[in-house]
Design a protein around this nucleic acid. Structure first.
Lengths: 199, 199
DNA sequence: GCTATCTTGAAACGGTCGTTCCAGGTAGCC
DNA sequence: GGCTACCTGGAACGACCGTTTCAAGATAGC
């Protein structure tokens, strides 16, 4: 049979994710991708299709590698508010330090960019938002059952609030916000949702 | 003396703001601007300089026309929390309906884009963030003095929280979030900050 | 009305964009 | 080993990018 691919598409996609994540879709050229991945234009187009499809594939890969693991860890945690605190701590850690510091969130960046005009991207963004909300809601339901929430706090509404807060963290971190400042703000938000009891 | 400009730079800048606001900097070409404003490349470059300077001028114009009036209205309002509620209502109104629906905030968009790598843009973003925080802080100090805040609520920290929330609203509105959903979330946030008294 | 000075129109610059095409190379099956 | 089906390298495509240049047009002061 035929010759076989001389590269691993998923490895290539990881490199592509980093390019789109840091620079955005519009600012990243095919040439950048060719240079960074080392593979040829022909192989690129044969494997992934054009730029738009490649970007969409990168978005999906990002979600699989970053968003969903975090969401799972959140939804499956039965500690309630401490789980939310840990989620945000970890988020701020990635956003403000290490290799990806000041890159923001690839998906949040997509919301602000022109790429969100594409129907497929838009659908992806909506779905991502629902997954984030649902994970937060699930853990807040637990928190409510444990009596960690202030009286009259609706878990779903609080989840919406925290979701928007996460977007704010993503945005500000890309512009260089300090981790300490973001942490303090998140802590205050959780305090205002909480019942005031430490346990 | 010489010939005089055949156009009003501020009017042109308004058109340019709309282009950059809606499409982003990277996706907006000089040709788009020439077409939309009707004036010539020569006049454009002679008046504003290159694309980067034009974008920066548009950012400043946006702040003068949108951000600062809203910030002033907020900081000068002595009603406390109701002023904050009105600020967000008005924000959501602009973001979700009318001519600028789903455009998001030009400055929030800039935070997510590649343009934030430019030092001038970065400085602008920082200053804008400070102005937003300060306006919110001022009105929250009033709210605190009027006993509208929950006990132990620090106005400055609460201002940071609301600022991040505003960024979240800007981001989600661009991706098509419903006004009603955003309003409900904001209302919940204000409720969680409040003392629970209606007046 | 002439001149000096600025503005305007339009063409053109080199470079880069995303994409396509094709010859040459390589692996598996007969 | 030959055939076939696929992949790779590299050149090339037309279109558009931001920017520059220059001649022609327009205005205020003399």
């Amino acid at each position: 049979m035929p010759d076989i691919k001389h590269f691993d598409p998923d490895t290539v996609l990881d490199t592509v994710v980093r390019l789109f994540w840091r620079q955005g879709m519009a600012t990243t050229g095919i040439q950048d991708i060719v240079t960074a991945t080392g593979l040829n234009r022909s192989s690129l187009y044969a494997t992934f299709g054009g730029k738009q499809e490649l970007y969409l594939a990168a978005l999906h890969r990002y979600r699989e590698q970053w968003s969903r693991p975090a969401f799972r860890g959140l939804a499956e945690d039965d500690r309630g508010l401490p789980a939310v605190a840990e989620f945000f701590d970890s988020l701020i850690g990635v956003r403000c330090s290490g290799e990806y510091a000041r890159w923001g969130c690839m998906i949040s960046n997509a919301q602000a960019g022109a790429e969100n005009g594409d129907p497929d991207v838009r659908a992806f963004l909506d779905q991502h938002h629902e997954e984030l909300r649902e994970a937060l809601r699930a853990v807040l339901v637990v928190a409510g059952a444990e009596g960690q929430l202030a009286p009259g706090t609706d878990p779903a509404t609080a989840a919406d609030l925290l979701a928007l807060l996460a977007y704010g963290v993503n945005l500000r971190s890309r512009a260089g916000a300090e981790a300490g400042s973001l942490s303090a703000t998140v802590a205050a938000a959780l305090r205002s949702l909480g019942s005031g009891t430490t346990d």
